[in-house]
Design a protein around this nucleic acid. Structure first.
Lengths: 209, 209
DNA sequence: ATTTTTTATGATCGTTTGGTCAGAAATGAC
DNA sequence: GTCATTTCTGACCAAACGATCATAAAAAAT
Protein backbone atom coordinates (compact mmCIF):
# COMPACT_ATOMS: atom_id res chain seq x y z
CA UNK A 1 0.00 0.00 0.00
CA UNK A 2 2.13 2.88 -1.26
CA UNK A 3 0.58 6.34 -0.97
CA UNK A 4 4.03 7.69 -1.62
CA UNK A 5 4.71 9.09 1.81
CA UNK A 6 7.84 6.98 1.59
CA UNK A 7 10.14 6.91 -1.43
CA UNK A 8 9.02 4.80 -4.42
CA UNK A 9 10.23 1.20 -4.03
CA UNK A 10 9.07 -0.98 -6.90
CA UNK A 11 9.77 -0.47 -10.62
CA UNK A 12 6.14 0.45 -11.28
CA UNK A 13 6.08 2.96 -8.43
CA UNK A 14 9.14 4.72 -9.82
CA UNK A 15 7.72 4.84 -13.33
CA UNK A 16 4.23 6.00 -12.43
CA UNK A 17 5.14 8.56 -9.79
CA UNK A 18 7.65 9.93 -12.30
CA UNK A 19 4.93 10.23 -14.94
CA UNK A 20 2.67 11.96 -12.46
CA UNK A 21 5.27 14.50 -11.38
CA UNK A 22 6.19 15.24 -14.99
CA UNK A 23 2.54 15.78 -15.90
CA UNK A 24 1.89 17.82 -12.76
CA UNK A 25 4.86 20.07 -13.50
CA UNK A 26 3.47 20.72 -16.96
CA UNK A 27 0.00 21.53 -15.65
CA UNK A 28 0.89 23.42 -12.46
CA UNK A 29 3.46 25.59 -14.24
CA UNK A 30 0.88 26.61 -16.82
CA UNK A 31 -2.19 27.15 -14.65
CA UNK A 32 -0.94 27.57 -11.08
CA UNK A 33 -1.99 25.40 -8.17
CA UNK A 34 -5.63 26.44 -7.91
CA UNK A 35 -5.96 26.68 -11.67
CA UNK A 36 -4.94 23.06 -12.16
CA UNK A 37 -7.23 20.08 -11.66
CA UNK A 38 -6.46 16.48 -10.84
CA UNK A 39 -8.32 15.50 -14.00
CA UNK A 40 -5.95 17.60 -16.11
CA UNK A 41 -2.94 16.04 -14.45
CA UNK A 42 -4.38 12.55 -14.76
CA UNK A 43 -5.07 13.10 -18.44
CA UNK A 44 -1.56 14.47 -19.04
CA UNK A 45 -0.05 11.54 -17.17
CA UNK A 46 -2.18 8.99 -18.99
CA UNK A 47 -3.59 7.66 -15.73
CA UNK A 48 -6.96 7.65 -14.02
CA UNK A 49 -7.66 10.16 -11.28
CA UNK A 50 -8.02 7.55 -8.53
CA UNK A 51 -4.73 6.11 -9.69
CA UNK A 52 -3.03 9.45 -9.05
CA UNK A 53 -4.33 9.36 -5.53
CA UNK A 54 -3.02 5.83 -5.14
CA UNK A 55 0.50 7.23 -5.52
CA UNK A 56 0.05 10.59 -3.81
CA UNK A 57 -2.07 11.46 -0.80
CA UNK A 58 -3.54 14.60 -2.32
CA UNK A 59 -3.18 17.34 -4.91
CA UNK A 60 -1.24 19.26 -2.26
CA UNK A 61 1.17 16.36 -1.86
CA UNK A 62 2.00 16.33 -5.57
CA UNK A 63 2.60 20.07 -5.54
CA UNK A 64 4.73 19.86 -2.41
CA UNK A 65 6.89 17.12 -3.95
CA UNK A 66 7.50 19.26 -7.04
CA UNK A 67 8.52 22.27 -4.94
CA UNK A 68 10.82 20.08 -2.89
CA UNK A 69 12.58 18.75 -6.01
CA UNK A 70 12.78 22.27 -7.42
CA UNK A 71 14.40 23.79 -4.35
CA UNK A 72 17.08 21.10 -4.39
CA UNK A 73 18.47 22.46 -7.67
CA UNK A 74 17.40 26.08 -7.43
CA UNK A 75 20.47 27.31 -5.56
CA UNK A 76 23.13 25.40 -7.51
CA UNK A 77 23.98 28.16 -9.98
CA UNK A 78 24.62 30.68 -7.20
CA UNK A 79 26.56 28.14 -5.12
CA UNK A 80 28.86 27.61 -8.10
CA UNK A 81 29.98 31.26 -8.02
CA UNK A 82 33.43 31.01 -6.45
CA UNK A 83 35.43 33.69 -4.69
CA UNK A 84 38.67 32.41 -6.18
CA UNK A 85 37.92 33.11 -9.86
CA UNK A 86 38.04 36.36 -11.78
CA UNK A 87 35.31 38.52 -10.27
CA UNK A 88 33.61 39.83 -13.39
CA UNK A 89 33.80 36.44 -15.09
CA UNK A 90 32.39 34.68 -12.04
CA UNK A 91 29.37 36.98 -12.02
CA UNK A 92 28.83 36.67 -15.75
CA UNK A 93 29.20 32.90 -15.38
CA UNK A 94 26.42 32.98 -12.82
CA UNK A 95 24.25 34.98 -15.19
CA UNK A 96 24.93 32.43 -17.92
CA UNK A 97 24.04 29.43 -15.76
CA UNK A 98 20.86 31.11 -14.52
CA UNK A 99 19.85 32.00 -18.07
CA UNK A 100 20.48 28.43 -19.20
CA UNK A 101 18.18 27.24 -16.43
CA UNK A 102 15.49 29.63 -17.64
CA UNK A 103 15.94 28.25 -21.15
CA UNK A 104 16.11 24.55 -20.25
CA UNK A 105 13.74 24.45 -17.25
CA UNK A 106 11.13 27.15 -17.85
CA UNK A 107 8.40 25.10 -16.19
CA UNK A 108 10.32 24.94 -12.94
CA UNK A 109 10.89 28.69 -13.11
CA UNK A 110 7.18 29.37 -13.62
CA UNK A 111 6.25 27.00 -10.81
CA UNK A 112 8.55 28.99 -8.54
CA UNK A 113 7.23 32.31 -9.82
CA UNK A 114 3.65 31.25 -9.20
CA UNK A 115 4.52 30.29 -5.66
CA UNK A 116 6.30 33.56 -4.86
CA UNK A 117 3.60 35.64 -6.53
CA UNK A 118 1.00 34.17 -4.18
CA UNK A 119 3.16 35.12 -1.21
CA UNK A 120 5.23 31.92 -1.00
CA UNK A 121 2.83 30.31 1.50
CA UNK A 122 4.47 26.89 1.26
CA UNK A 123 8.14 27.79 0.91
CA UNK A 124 8.53 30.89 3.00
CA UNK A 125 10.81 29.01 5.36
CA UNK A 126 13.15 28.02 2.54
CA UNK A 127 13.30 31.64 1.36
CA UNK A 128 14.02 33.27 4.69
CA UNK A 129 16.26 30.37 5.73
CA UNK A 130 18.66 28.64 3.32
CA UNK A 131 18.15 31.09 0.46
CA UNK A 132 18.76 34.19 2.55
CA UNK A 133 21.79 32.54 4.12
CA UNK A 134 23.33 31.71 0.73
CA UNK A 135 22.69 35.21 -0.59
CA UNK A 136 24.26 36.73 2.50
CA UNK A 137 27.34 34.52 2.08
CA UNK A 138 27.78 35.39 -1.57
CA UNK A 139 27.21 39.05 -0.79
CA UNK A 140 30.27 38.92 1.46
CA UNK A 141 32.25 37.48 -1.45
CA UNK A 142 31.08 40.31 -3.69
CA UNK A 143 31.94 42.88 -1.01
CA UNK A 144 35.47 41.48 -0.94
CA UNK A 145 35.75 41.79 -4.69
CA UNK A 146 34.71 45.41 -4.35
CA UNK A 147 37.25 46.06 -1.60
CA UNK A 148 39.94 44.40 -3.71
CA UNK A 149 38.97 46.67 -6.59
CA UNK A 150 38.23 43.81 -9.01
CA UNK A 151 34.67 45.02 -9.58
CA UNK A 152 33.08 48.45 -9.34
CA UNK A 153 31.23 49.28 -6.11
CA UNK A 154 27.60 48.15 -6.04
CA UNK A 155 24.97 46.72 -3.68
CA UNK A 156 25.55 42.92 -3.62
CA UNK A 157 22.01 41.96 -2.61
CA UNK A 158 20.41 44.07 -5.30
CA UNK A 159 22.97 42.85 -7.81
CA UNK A 160 21.81 39.31 -7.14
CA UNK A 161 18.15 40.38 -7.33
CA UNK A 162 18.82 41.96 -10.71
CA UNK A 163 20.37 38.74 -12.01
CA UNK A 164 17.41 36.70 -10.79
CA UNK A 165 14.94 39.15 -12.27
CA UNK A 166 16.52 39.41 -15.70
CA UNK A 167 17.22 35.73 -16.23
CA UNK A 168 13.94 34.38 -14.86
CA UNK A 169 12.12 36.99 -16.93
CA UNK A 170 13.00 35.00 -20.05
CA UNK A 171 11.21 31.95 -18.63
CA UNK A 172 8.31 33.53 -16.75
CA UNK A 173 7.43 36.22 -19.29
CA UNK A 174 8.40 34.20 -22.36
CA UNK A 175 5.03 34.80 -24.01
CA UNK A 176 5.57 38.55 -23.81
CA UNK A 177 9.22 38.32 -24.88
CA UNK A 178 8.30 36.28 -27.94
CA UNK A 179 5.36 38.50 -28.85
CA UNK A 180 7.45 41.69 -28.64
CA UNK A 181 10.48 40.28 -30.44
CA UNK A 182 8.38 38.93 -33.31
CA UNK A 183 10.52 37.19 -35.89
CA UNK A 184 13.67 37.61 -33.80
CA UNK A 185 12.11 35.46 -31.07
CA UNK A 186 13.90 32.24 -31.98
CA UNK A 187 17.25 33.83 -31.15
CA UNK A 188 16.01 35.28 -27.86
CA UNK A 189 18.21 33.29 -25.48
CA UNK A 190 21.41 33.84 -27.46
CA UNK A 191 20.64 37.53 -27.77
CA UNK A 192 19.78 37.74 -24.08
CA UNK A 193 23.08 36.15 -23.09
CA UNK A 194 25.00 38.55 -25.29
CA UNK A 195 23.07 41.52 -23.93
CA UNK A 196 23.39 40.53 -20.28
CA UNK A 197 27.08 39.67 -20.55
CA UNK A 198 27.70 43.04 -22.12
CA UNK A 199 25.51 44.86 -19.58
CA UNK A 200 27.18 43.40 -16.52
CA UNK A 201 30.68 43.59 -17.98
CA UNK A 202 30.24 47.28 -18.65
CA UNK A 203 28.56 47.95 -15.33
CA UNK A 204 30.93 45.97 -13.15
CA UNK A 205 34.37 46.34 -14.72
CA UNK A 206 36.36 48.60 -12.43
CA UNK A 207 36.99 52.09 -13.78
CA UNK A 208 40.39 53.62 -14.25
CA UNK A 209 40.74 57.05 -12.68
CA UNK B 1 -31.06 47.19 -15.15
CA UNK B 2 -27.32 47.79 -15.06
CA UNK B 3 -25.18 44.71 -15.48
CA UNK B 4 -22.30 47.06 -16.13
CA UNK B 5 -21.85 46.28 -19.79
CA UNK B 6 -22.20 50.03 -20.16
CA UNK B 7 -20.36 52.55 -18.04
CA UNK B 8 -21.73 53.24 -14.53
CA UNK B 9 -24.36 55.96 -14.65
CA UNK B 10 -25.86 56.63 -11.25
CA UNK B 11 -24.04 57.63 -8.07
CA UNK B 12 -24.66 54.23 -6.50
CA UNK B 13 -23.40 52.42 -9.57
CA UNK B 14 -20.16 54.38 -9.51
CA UNK B 15 -19.62 53.74 -5.81
CA UNK B 16 -20.45 50.06 -5.79
CA UNK B 17 -18.66 49.05 -8.98
CA UNK B 18 -15.65 50.95 -7.65
CA UNK B 19 -15.78 48.99 -4.40
CA UNK B 20 -16.04 45.75 -6.35
CA UNK B 21 -13.08 46.50 -8.60
CA UNK B 22 -10.95 47.58 -5.65
CA UNK B 23 -11.81 44.38 -3.78
CA UNK B 24 -11.32 42.23 -6.88
CA UNK B 25 -7.89 43.75 -7.51
CA UNK B 26 -6.88 42.89 -3.98
CA UNK B 27 -8.09 39.31 -4.28
CA UNK B 28 -7.10 38.54 -7.89
CA UNK B 29 -3.58 39.94 -7.41
CA UNK B 30 -3.04 37.72 -4.39
CA UNK B 31 -4.60 34.47 -5.57
CA UNK B 32 -4.81 34.67 -9.36
CA UNK B 33 -8.00 34.33 -11.36
CA UNK B 34 -8.78 30.68 -10.67
CA UNK B 35 -7.55 30.97 -7.10
CA UNK B 36 -10.04 33.71 -6.31
CA UNK B 37 -13.71 33.19 -5.53
CA UNK B 38 -16.68 35.49 -5.86
CA UNK B 39 -17.33 34.97 -2.14
CA UNK B 40 -13.87 36.33 -1.31
CA UNK B 41 -14.41 39.36 -3.51
CA UNK B 42 -17.91 39.93 -2.15
CA UNK B 43 -16.62 39.75 1.41
CA UNK B 44 -13.75 42.14 0.64
CA UNK B 45 -16.15 44.54 -1.05
CA UNK B 46 -18.70 44.34 1.78
CA UNK B 47 -21.42 43.22 -0.62
CA UNK B 48 -23.42 40.06 -1.17
CA UNK B 49 -22.45 37.70 -3.95
CA UNK B 50 -25.64 38.18 -5.98
CA UNK B 51 -25.09 41.91 -5.64
CA UNK B 52 -21.70 41.58 -7.33
CA UNK B 53 -23.41 39.87 -10.22
CA UNK B 54 -25.92 42.67 -10.37
CA UNK B 55 -23.10 45.03 -11.33
CA UNK B 56 -20.99 42.65 -13.40
CA UNK B 57 -22.11 39.88 -15.71
CA UNK B 58 -19.64 37.35 -14.38
CA UNK B 59 -16.38 36.74 -12.58
CA UNK B 60 -14.70 36.94 -15.97
CA UNK B 61 -16.22 40.36 -16.59
CA UNK B 62 -14.75 41.77 -13.36
CA UNK B 63 -11.34 40.41 -14.26
CA UNK B 64 -11.55 41.72 -17.79
CA UNK B 65 -12.44 45.20 -16.53
CA UNK B 66 -9.43 45.21 -14.22
CA UNK B 67 -7.08 44.20 -17.04
CA UNK B 68 -8.57 46.87 -19.27
CA UNK B 69 -7.98 49.58 -16.66
CA UNK B 70 -4.47 48.27 -16.04
CA UNK B 71 -3.44 48.32 -19.68
CA UNK B 72 -4.54 51.94 -19.96
CA UNK B 73 -1.76 53.04 -17.63
CA UNK B 74 0.76 50.26 -18.18
CA UNK B 75 2.54 51.91 -21.10
CA UNK B 76 2.69 55.48 -19.77
CA UNK B 77 6.18 55.28 -18.25
CA UNK B 78 7.70 54.05 -21.50
CA UNK B 79 5.75 56.57 -23.58
CA UNK B 80 7.21 59.32 -21.42
CA UNK B 81 10.76 58.43 -22.52
CA UNK B 82 11.55 61.19 -24.99
CA UNK B 83 14.13 61.20 -27.76
CA UNK B 84 14.92 64.88 -27.14
CA UNK B 85 16.33 64.54 -23.64
CA UNK B 86 19.73 63.40 -22.48
CA UNK B 87 19.92 59.72 -23.45
CA UNK B 88 21.27 58.21 -20.24
CA UNK B 89 19.00 60.38 -18.09
CA UNK B 90 15.95 59.52 -20.18
CA UNK B 91 16.58 55.81 -19.69
CA UNK B 92 17.24 56.19 -15.97
CA UNK B 93 14.12 58.30 -15.72
CA UNK B 94 12.16 55.47 -17.27
CA UNK B 95 13.67 53.05 -14.75
CA UNK B 96 12.65 55.40 -11.93
CA UNK B 97 9.06 55.75 -13.12
CA UNK B 98 8.71 52.01 -13.59
CA UNK B 99 10.13 51.35 -10.13
CA UNK B 100 7.74 53.87 -8.62
CA UNK B 101 4.87 52.01 -10.25
CA UNK B 102 6.11 48.76 -8.73
CA UNK B 103 6.23 50.47 -5.34
CA UNK B 104 2.90 52.30 -5.56
CA UNK B 105 0.86 49.81 -7.59
CA UNK B 106 2.19 46.34 -6.70
CA UNK B 107 -1.25 44.74 -7.03
CA UNK B 108 -1.56 45.86 -10.62
CA UNK B 109 1.91 44.50 -11.33
CA UNK B 110 1.04 41.13 -9.83
CA UNK B 111 -2.24 41.00 -11.73
CA UNK B 112 -0.27 41.53 -14.93
CA UNK B 113 2.37 39.00 -13.92
CA UNK B 114 -0.28 36.38 -13.19
CA UNK B 115 -1.80 36.95 -16.59
CA UNK B 116 1.50 36.68 -18.50
CA UNK B 117 2.61 33.65 -16.48
CA UNK B 118 -0.50 31.77 -17.59
CA UNK B 119 0.30 32.56 -21.19
CA UNK B 120 -1.57 35.89 -21.47
CA UNK B 121 -4.74 34.19 -22.72
CA UNK B 122 -6.85 37.33 -22.39
CA UNK B 123 -4.42 40.07 -23.38
CA UNK B 124 -2.26 38.46 -26.04
CA UNK B 125 -3.60 40.87 -28.59
CA UNK B 126 -2.54 43.87 -26.51
CA UNK B 127 0.95 42.41 -26.13
CA UNK B 128 1.61 41.59 -29.75
CA UNK B 129 -0.21 44.74 -30.89
CA UNK B 130 0.13 48.08 -29.09
CA UNK B 131 2.86 46.94 -26.69
CA UNK B 132 5.09 45.53 -29.41
CA UNK B 133 4.52 48.63 -31.50
CA UNK B 134 5.53 50.98 -28.68
CA UNK B 135 8.63 48.92 -27.90
CA UNK B 136 9.63 48.92 -31.56
CA UNK B 137 9.22 52.70 -31.71
CA UNK B 138 11.28 53.33 -28.61
CA UNK B 139 13.90 50.87 -29.84
CA UNK B 140 14.40 53.10 -32.85
CA UNK B 141 14.94 56.04 -30.50
CA UNK B 142 17.54 54.05 -28.59
CA UNK B 143 19.24 52.98 -31.82
CA UNK B 144 19.57 56.65 -32.74
CA UNK B 145 21.12 57.43 -29.37
CA UNK B 146 23.63 54.67 -30.03
CA UNK B 147 24.40 55.99 -33.52
CA UNK B 148 24.82 59.47 -32.09
CA UNK B 149 27.22 58.07 -29.50
CA UNK B 150 25.25 59.33 -26.52
CA UNK B 151 24.91 55.82 -25.07
CA UNK B 152 27.05 52.71 -25.44
CA UNK B 153 25.93 50.12 -28.03
CA UNK B 154 23.40 47.62 -26.73
CA UNK B 155 20.33 45.67 -27.87
CA UNK B 156 17.35 48.05 -27.40
CA UNK B 157 14.68 45.35 -27.05
CA UNK B 158 16.62 43.44 -24.44
CA UNK B 159 17.47 46.68 -22.67
CA UNK B 160 13.76 47.35 -22.29
CA UNK B 161 13.15 43.76 -21.15
CA UNK B 162 15.82 44.15 -18.50
CA UNK B 163 14.18 47.30 -17.19
CA UNK B 164 10.79 45.59 -17.03
CA UNK B 165 12.27 42.56 -15.32
CA UNK B 166 14.24 44.39 -12.65
CA UNK B 167 11.59 46.93 -11.72
CA UNK B 168 8.60 44.56 -11.70
CA UNK B 169 10.68 42.11 -9.69
CA UNK B 170 10.34 44.42 -6.70
CA UNK B 171 6.55 44.17 -6.90
CA UNK B 172 6.03 40.57 -8.04
CA UNK B 173 8.72 38.97 -5.88
CA UNK B 174 8.39 41.35 -2.97
CA UNK B 175 7.96 38.51 -0.48
CA UNK B 176 11.30 37.07 -1.54
CA UNK B 177 13.02 40.44 -1.63
CA UNK B 178 11.86 41.27 1.89
CA UNK B 179 12.78 37.83 3.25
CA UNK B 180 16.28 37.97 1.80
CA UNK B 181 16.97 41.57 2.80
CA UNK B 182 15.82 41.00 6.38
CA UNK B 183 16.08 44.15 8.42
CA UNK B 184 17.14 46.22 5.41
CA UNK B 185 13.79 45.47 3.77
CA UNK B 186 12.13 48.76 4.64
CA UNK B 187 14.67 50.66 2.54
CA UNK B 188 14.31 48.27 -0.41
CA UNK B 189 12.84 50.70 -2.94
CA UNK B 190 15.31 53.49 -2.21
CA UNK B 191 18.20 51.04 -2.36
CA UNK B 192 16.83 49.53 -5.56
CA UNK B 193 16.61 52.92 -7.23
CA UNK B 194 20.17 53.76 -6.22
CA UNK B 195 21.41 50.39 -7.43
CA UNK B 196 19.57 50.48 -10.76
CA UNK B 197 20.53 54.08 -11.50
CA UNK B 198 24.14 53.20 -10.85
CA UNK B 199 23.95 49.99 -12.87
CA UNK B 200 22.47 51.57 -15.98
CA UNK B 201 24.59 54.69 -15.75
CA UNK B 202 27.74 52.60 -15.66
CA UNK B 203 26.56 50.23 -18.35
CA UNK B 204 25.21 52.82 -20.76
CA UNK B 205 27.50 55.81 -20.44
CA UNK B 206 29.54 55.94 -23.62
CA UNK B 207 33.18 54.95 -23.20
CA UNK B 208 36.10 57.11 -24.13
CA UNK B 209 38.67 55.33 -26.35
C1' DA C 1 -48.38 60.30 -1.82
C1' DT C 2 -48.11 57.20 -5.46
C1' DT C 3 -45.83 55.00 -9.02
C1' DT C 4 -41.76 53.54 -11.28
C1' DT C 5 -37.19 52.26 -11.37
C1' DT C 6 -33.11 50.84 -9.25
C1' DT C 7 -30.75 48.15 -5.93
C1' DA C 8 -30.31 44.16 -3.02
C1' DT C 9 -30.84 39.36 -1.13
C1' DG C 10 -32.13 34.47 0.43
C1' DA C 11 -32.89 30.36 -1.58
C1' DT C 12 -31.46 27.41 -4.85
C1' DC C 13 -29.56 25.17 -9.08
C1' DG C 14 -26.18 22.64 -12.02
C1' DT C 15 -21.21 21.81 -12.38
C1' DT C 16 -16.83 21.11 -11.07
C1' DT C 17 -13.63 19.39 -8.00
C1' DG C 18 -10.81 16.83 -4.58
C1' DG C 19 -11.18 12.72 -2.60
C1' DT C 20 -13.10 7.79 -1.16
C1' DC C 21 -14.20 2.93 -1.57
C1' DA C 22 -15.24 -1.72 -2.76
C1' DG C 23 -13.80 -4.68 -5.76
C1' DA C 24 -11.49 -6.07 -10.21
C1' DA C 25 -7.22 -6.85 -12.75
C1' DA C 26 -2.39 -7.40 -12.97
C1' DT C 27 1.94 -8.63 -10.97
C1' DG C 28 5.12 -11.23 -8.44
C1' DA C 29 6.50 -14.98 -5.02
C1' DC C 30 6.54 -19.76 -4.20
C1' DG D 1 -0.45 -23.22 -10.95
C1' DT D 2 -1.76 -21.16 -6.60
C1' DC D 3 -1.84 -17.56 -3.59
C1' DA D 4 -0.73 -13.02 -1.79
C1' DT D 5 0.35 -8.46 -2.80
C1' DT D 6 0.35 -4.60 -5.61
C1' DT D 7 -1.87 -1.88 -8.97
C1' DC D 8 -5.91 0.02 -11.03
C1' DT D 9 -10.81 1.57 -11.93
C1' DG D 10 -15.95 2.80 -12.11
C1' DA D 11 -19.16 4.56 -9.22
C1' DC D 12 -19.92 7.67 -5.94
C1' DC D 13 -19.79 11.55 -2.29
C1' DA D 14 -19.61 16.07 -0.05
C1' DA D 15 -18.08 20.62 -0.48
C1' DA D 16 -17.15 24.62 -3.17
C1' DC D 17 -18.28 27.45 -6.80
C1' DG D 18 -20.35 30.46 -10.45
C1' DA D 19 -24.60 31.81 -11.58
C1' DT D 20 -29.93 32.49 -11.57
C1' DC D 21 -34.42 33.98 -10.00
C1' DA D 22 -38.35 35.52 -7.67
C1' DT D 23 -39.09 38.85 -4.65
C1' DA D 24 -38.19 42.42 -1.23
C1' DA D 25 -36.27 46.92 0.06
C1' DA D 26 -34.67 51.38 -1.18
C1' DA D 27 -34.38 55.37 -4.18
C1' DA D 28 -35.93 58.33 -7.60
C1' DA D 29 -39.44 60.30 -10.44
C1' DT D 30 -44.00 62.04 -10.93
Amino acid sequence: MPKTSKAPRTRIQKEKSGQILEAALEVFSNFGFRGSTLDQIAEAAGLSKPNLLYYFDSKEAIHAKLLEQLLENWLHPLRAMKAEGNAVEEIIGYVRRKLEMARDYPRESRLFANEILQGAPRIHGQISGPLKQLVDEKSVVIERWISAGTIAPTDPHHLIFSIWAMTQHYADFDVQVQAVLGERADRRFDDALAFLSNLFRNALSPRAF
